[in-house]
């Protein structure tokens, strides 16, 4: 009985819309205001055309690279806040680090435009100290910078939660057994925080896969991503809701599979005692 409200919400907010998208996706070339035509897989087959595969490939590339960047940058920061910083400063540091989240991601992307543009902050700085300037804006590198910056706080938050729970005595135990700091890190810290690492990566991966503000604003002429392609199908001139739905289903599937993998393998870690 207690599950009824939760179940109802789930049905209303998650299952029903997904089923609707599924239904749309099974009518090739469906457009709004039209009667549903025959069922078919045409929308899904369309995805396999090289230009669309290229778009999906770029989205994956952006998502995977920004996830790795966030992990590489986020782990030391989270480790420092959770393990090394004085206890009473931890909350303050954490708040400071996630403060950018209080601003709109659009605003943050505009800030990066200001920094990266040809006559922007970065290049002014570089030329002041006599270094060659960089043409970063309207390139893939700008998208990676923007995505990583946008999602780094999420990664840090999740890794912090995981590292903060890390039993420090296990680190001492490993050192006691002869492990040097690197060995302690790879043999204890990383395995112990693996669920947090997986959760953080998954969150960053999913959100950057679906993000289109950053590629749109920072990516320049060649920045079409799956999210923007879907947007174009729904609200662009073509209004091919069928194809847009099949692309959406693909994203939903990718996200569901990764979450399922996380639940399955993330759960294998034995409980703490």
């Amino acid at each position: 009985m207690l599950l009824v409200p939760a179940g109802a919400w789930l049905l209303l907010l998650l299952v029903a819309p997904s089923l609707m998208i599924l239904e749309f996706s099974l009518h090739p070339g469906l457009r709004p205001g039209q009667a549903f035509g025959a069922y078919g897989l045409g929308n899904y087959l369309q995805i396999f055309q090289p230009i669309y595969l290229q778009v999906i490939g770029r989205s994956l590339y952006f998502a995977i690279s920004s996830t790795l960047t966030c992990l590489l940058l986020g782990f030391p920061v989270a480790y420092w806040i959770a393990v090394m910083a004085p206890k009473r400063w931890q909350n303050l540091l954490l708040v400071g680090f996630v403060l950018p989240l209080w601003t709109s991601s659009l605003l943050r992307s505009y800030a990066w435009i200001t920094i990266l543009r040809p006559t922007g902050v970065l290049n002014t700085l570089l030329s002041t100290i006599g270094l060659p300037t960089l043409d970063l804006l309207n390139q893939q590198s700008a998208v990676l910078i923007g995505l990583s910056y946008n999602f780094l706080p999420y990664m840090v938050l999740i890794l912090y939660a995981s590292l903060e729970k890390l039993d420090k005595r296990l680190l001492e135990a490993a050192a006691d057994l002869g492990a040097n700091p690197q060995q302690v890190f790879w043999k204890v810290t990383v395995p112990q925080t693996l669920p947090g690492i997986a959760a953080g990566c998954l969150l960053v991966f999913i959100t950057s896969l679906g993000d289109f503000v950053v590629p749109e604003l920072l990516g320049g002429a060649s920045s079409m991503t799956a999210a923007r392609l879907i947007y174009n199908q729904f609200l662009g001139a073509t209004r091919n809701w069928g194809f847009g739905s099949s692309l959406s289903m693909l994203l939903i599937l990718a996200v569901s599979v990764s979450i399922a993998l996380l639940i399955k393998y993330g759960d294998q870690e034995p409980e703490r005692y």
Partner: peptide, 10 residues
């Protein structure tokens, strides 16, 4: 260690 500090992932 006092509460053993065993590695629970091993």
């Amino acid at each position: 260690f006092q509460s053993y500090a065993l590695f629970n992932h091993m």
